[in-house]
């Protein structure tokens, strides 16, 4: 089974809010000192699932990314975890593309990679939380898309039975291959990259493709990100004084009432 996994590199979602910084344009999150960007968490789930399918059926797992040159780090991590090869679309013109543009670029790259049975994407990226690209990608490749997927129940190499999350439950869906799945974090726990993999990844060459390599015509974005804004939530603590538990309880109730909580 040949699987392509799309990998986006994002700012570490665990950055404390007080440390989040934006670049001067106000459109990008800049990773603060000492906290390098990471592979999008859902993409790691997608990669893990791809690797498990590969361990079962054989085949090849290809990691595909779109971003600036620093995104190679996440693709190297994909190789460290077990992906066979990785490609990066690093055309500066595509960095500000909208979801449609990214989807089309990824589709072009996948066609260039060759035949595939399955495309696994993260259900969304943790920086933009858009969840759009995978639909554009499925559209451009003319394959079925199911998202968000919490489980691949069975697979026989021709079709998959998957659990698609819905509110308070899931749907069991049968999907013909080739198909595209948007993977959710319920599906697995991504592996810790083995040391041998990390060392191999350090030596791996990851080709960079430009729009011209993919035969893409430049097209204007239909959705444009104007700017991001950081909203800091502040919290403060107040100690409720009182000489006995009963007194403290009364004071607490008074305070909550005063603040309008009760």
């Amino acid at each position: 089974m040949n699987i392509v996994v799309t990998i986006k590199q994002v700012a570490d979602p665990n950055i404390p809010p007080s440390h989040i910084q934006l670049d001067p344009s106000g459109k990008r999150i800049v990773s603060p000192f000492g906290i390098p960007p990471v592979m999008n968490g859902y993409d790691a789930n997608a990669l893990e699932e791809a690797l498990r399918l590969k361990e079962k059926h054989g085949g090849k797992v290809t990691a595909l990314g779109l971003g600036d040159d620093s995104s190679r780090e996440s693709l190297k991590r994909a190789i460290a975890m077990g992906a066979d090869t990785a490609m990066l679309i690093n055309d500066p013109d595509l960095l500000n593309a909208d979801s449609a543009g990214v989807g089309r670029a990824l589709a072009a790259a996948i066609r260039k990679i060759g035949s595939f049975d399955l495309i696994l994407c993260g259900r969304q990226a943790s920086d933009t939380d858009g969840g759009q690209v995978l639909h554009w990608l499925a559209e451009a490749l003319d394959v079925a898309a199911v998202t968000p997927v919490a489980k691949i129940e069975s697979d026989d190499g021709k079709q998959l039975t998957v659990h698609r999350l819905v509110e308070e439950g899931y749907q069991r869906l049968r999907v013909e291959l080739p198909a595209l799945l948007g993977v959710s974090s319920e599906i697995n726990e991504p592996r810790f990259p083995p040391m041998r993999g990390t060392m191999a990844a350090g030596r791996a060459m990851i080709p960079g493709w430009k729009a011209s390599d993919l035969g893409l015509q430049p097209s204007a974005a239909k959705v444009e990100l104007r700017n991001l804004q950081i909203q800091l939530r502040t919290s403060k603590a107040e100690l409720i004084a009182g000489s006995s538990p009963a007194e403290q309880g009364t004071a607490l109730a008074d305070k909550l009432h005063e603040l309008g909580f009760i």
Partner: peptide, 8 residues
């Protein structure tokens, strides 16, 4: 560092 502290 071992405990996910912010290097900064």
């Amino acid at each position: 560092n071992p405990y996910q502290n912010v290097p900064a």
